[in-house]
């Protein structure tokens, strides 16, 4: 058992995750019971009780969502703090890639948040409808969520347990660094084309959202996920660090950069989540939620603005753009 588990912050984190899981276990039992017995047409007291139980599940899920929302940045912060103890790591990038659980864990956490958000949205409209039309959908979605959260809990434990603080970790320069001659960008793009795509996709997303073209929006979101990520990593991020070869997604979450990473990635991921939620609302439920769309656009706009501002400020201060330094292979 790793001594890391005794670390105060990690212990608190794991305890919190356990409590949330436990409460969700109760919701799981209730959901299964409701799914089995639900019969909207019936007049029995059992059916009326089921409606009340449905509210319990809702309450538990709102709780879980709020807590997971807090626990995600807390998780990242914790990893940042551990990077002090672990040799070689300068930020959470090293910690998270220490073992094979790290990245998987991070992504499952994002996935869970997304699913919870979607569930809550469906629930909101299900309650407002007269016949609980999406009742089963909610139920099955929850079962999936519970499965994911159980896996997450196991990976939480496994991840921290598997970190050996006496081994040297990789720093982000090893993980994300540029090697001479190798183009890290997808689809064989170069920086200019990447940026053009970046801004174009943003416009495409905004237009398709208000034009109610949800299939186009879906494509736009998928592409933007990839392009946005790489743009931040290999272009905008370098302006945040003011170093042409610093390509780390995690370092910007640190105090040295005024924690801008949280705002930047937060807007990006938030926008994506809201986008997915909007698409599901429109294509699956047939409901158009104006507020959600506006919020999504606002978040993406914030994201674009932050990225562009860093470049603009650098240019204004220095009169030039950053030139990437050629990295020589060390023999």
């Amino acid at each position: 058992m790793s001594s890391l588990l005794l670390n105060t912050n990690i212990a608190i984190f794991l305890l919190a995750e356990w409590i949330v899981w436990f409460v969700l276990l109760i919701a799981f039992g209730v959901t299964v019971y409701i799914l089995k017995k639900w019969d909207f047409q019936s007049y029995t007291p059992v059916q009326y009780r089921l409606e009340k139980y449905a509210y319990l599940v809702m309450v538990i899920l709102i709780f879980a969502f709020s807590m997971k929302f807090i626990l995600l940045p807390y998780f990242i912060f914790t990893m940042d703090k551990i990077s002090d103890i672990v040799p070689g790591a300068m930020c959470s990038a090293g910690v998270i890639s220490f073992n094979h659980y790290g990245m998987k864990l991070f992504f499952i956490k994002l996935l869970i948040l997304l699913f919870l958000m979607v569930w809550l949205m469906i629930n909101h409209y299900d309650l407002d409808a007269k016949k609980y039309p999406w009742f089963k959908l909610k139920g099955w979605l929850y079962l999936v969520i519970f499965l994911l959260i159980s896996v997450e809990l196991y990976w939480d434990y496994a991840f921290f347990n598997d970190i050996d603080i006496h081994k040297v970790l990789n720093c982000c320069s090893t993980l994300y660094g540029l090697l001479e001659g190798v183009n890290p960008l997808p689809f064989g793009l170069d920086k200019t084309r990447l940026l053009i795509l970046f801004y174009l996709l943003y416009i495409m997303i905004v237009l398709s959202t208000f034009g109610k073209q949800y299939f186009i929006l879906s494509i736009g979101l998928i592409l933007f996920t990839i392009i946005g990520y790489y743009s931040v990593l290999y272009f905008f991020g370098t302006y945040i660090y003011q170093m042409p070869n610093h390509n780390c997604p995690f370092c910007m979450l640190q105090k040295d950069y005024y924690y801008i990473g949280y705002l930047l990635w937060g807007s990006f991921i938030g926008g994506l989540f809201l986008g997915v939620t909007t698409i599901i609302a429109n294509l699956v439920l047939g409901i158009d939620i104006q507020k959600l769309k506006i919020l999504m656009v606002l978040l993406f706009t914030q994201f674009i603005v932050i990225c562009s501002l860093y470049v603009a400020i650098y240019y204004i201060q220095n009169g030039v753009f950053l030139e990437p330094v050629k990295v020589e292979m060390v023999m």
Binding site: I12, L15, A16, I19, Y74
Partner: peptide, 11 residues
């Protein structure tokens, strides 16, 4: 502050 919150408010 979040540590305190998580230890108290969450439970």
């Amino acid at each position: 502050l979040s540590s305190i919150f998580l230890l108290y408010a969450l439970p």
